[in-house]
């Protein structure tokens, strides 16, 4: 189970275009990166790719009206959080004079046509985001970004926990 989860998190990160060093941190084959401006920028970029993907999934599911009435409010709240995370990190990249990662053209969402499929995609991207922020945050050099990323991680845990509960997965 944990193996399968790690696999899809890695698949998602690879699909988003993460570099090999960050993928190594995620799969445990790399223990630490040098603390530098370049590392912070690579982490910001990787985080942005996941935020873009999460926003695309939620927006598509909301446009297709796939969430039951009682769950729609969570989806609206969570996509708002992801947009906030994206904008904050876009600002941090731009402050550093770099060009931020753009969304992909296609997140292969054609088959997401039912409520169950939407919740499964949402849960997957939230698990990936939680794992990614947890793995990457300890490598951040700048104190303000470390604090920001920690607050973002708290949001990701909330999202993941809500979808786990909805799908009947134990949450405590």
């Amino acid at each position: 189970m944990a193996e399968a989860r790690r696999d899809f998190v890695l698949r998602l990160a690879r699909g988003a275009g993460w570099g090999s060093a960050l993928l190594g941190l995620l799969d445990g084959t790399v223990r630490a990166l040098s603390k530098s401006e370049e590392t912070d920028l690579a982490i910001l970029d990787a985080s942005l790719t996941l935020e873009h993907e999460a926003i695309a999934i939620y927006e598509a599911a909301l446009q297709r009206n796939l969430f039951l009435a009682g769950l729609r409010a969570y989806a609206v709240e969570f996509v708002g959080d992801h947009k906030g995370h994206r904008d904050t990190q876009l600002g941090l990249v731009e402050e550093r004079g770099a060009r931020p990662a753009a969304p992909l053209d296609d997140y292969h969402l054609e088959e997401m046509r039912t409520g169950d499929a939407a919740i499964r995609r949402c849960l997957e991207v939230e698990i990936a985001a939680q794992r990614a922020y947890q793995a990457l945050n300890s490598q951040i050099r700048t104190k303000d970004y470390l604090l920001t990323a920690a607050f973002i991680l708290v949001d990701e845990v909330r999202h993941e926990t809500v979808w786990k509960r909805v799908t009947g997965i134990r949450i405590y």
Binding site: A32, K35, Q130, Q134, N137, S138, Q139, L146, A150, L153, V154, V157, R158, T161, V162, I171, Y172
Partner: peptide, 22 residues
């Protein structure tokens, strides 16, 4: 970094508890 990693893991547990309470 190791200490940050340890406390981050704890924070993840505690954020989950907070959501359970919510």
């Amino acid at each position: 970094a190791v200490s940050v990693s340890l406390l981050l893991g704890d924070m993840v547990d505690l954020a989950r508890h907070l959501t359970v309470i919510d």
